[in-house]
Design a binder for these strands. Structure first.
Lengths: 128, 128
DNA sequence: ACTGCTGTACTAGATAGATAGTACACTACA
DNA sequence: TGTAGTGTACTATCTATCTAGTACAGCAGT
């Protein structure tokens, strides 16, 4: 379910966990009212420390995506899907823009960048 | 000359400095045989610590892009331009691919991603 | 020779991220 | 009423990055 946690990604682990959970909710792999896997279980799934997951869950809670039900677990809120679908686009867009900005500043031409992007999109989406 | 060093970029500063220098050489802002700005001068330009620049210069040296001439400065090697032009494409491509991979995994459709990319490329390159 | 500039090499401290381990209050369920 | 599983809150330790400050050997130009 969460195959791509990359410790040497530059992106902090607790943030990667947040993103993965958000994407899963946006994709309706988890539905409102359901419980997320427990801190300890999710930590095993993602091969990170339980504290790291706890930090991510705290973050998701502050964003109104999940609610803590003491002694029971983290429940997905009613607004979670809406928030996460917005977040998904925002987060992805942010990263793409950042990469393209560097390309722009580095004096690469529009043609060179377009070529790279089109090639990679083809490669990544061909086996849909 | 180096307007975009961003401390909260996720990318370590010393690595950002490396990239900027590589891009400048690829763009022939510095030519083989010339000296790079001194550690202290570059540190001022980029608003970072001299130690950070020194670390970056050490990295560039190990990659064969510059040579240390004790008491004089860091001299740009004959192969620097070739190496840096390759590196420029590689580094940019790496970042773009990484962002697109996340988009792919997050179940965004090819159309949504293409739309984002095309819009941003238009926006960034229009004022060429 | 002197002075000022190089790179280089230290030490020390601050901060952020991550791991490991422990503990505790709460809830669900048999 | 136990008991097992929740979130939560600590402390301690490790690593990487960055900053600050100091020092020193080597080169260039006066």
């Amino acid at each position: 379910m969460f195959p791509n946690i990359d410790p040497q990604n530059g992106i902090p682990l607790f943030e990667q966990v947040c993103r993965q959970v958000k994407f899963a909710i946006a994709d309706q792999a988890y539905l409102p009212g359901e419980l997320l896997p427990s801190v300890r279980e999710m930590a095993q799934k993602m091969a990170v420390n339980p504290n790291t997951v706890a930090r991510s869950y705290g973050e998701l809670q502050r964003e109104g995506i999940i609610e803590s039900v003491r002694g029971t677990g983290m429940q997905i809120t009613a607004e979670a899907r809406r928030i996460c679908q917005k977040e998904r686009v925002r987060l992805i867009q942010e990263r793409i823009v950042s990469a393209l900005q560097e390309a722009r500043f580095s004096q690469l031409t529009q043609e060179e960048v377009t070529k790279i992007v089109e090639r990679e999109i083809q490669r990544l989406w061909k086996s849909k």
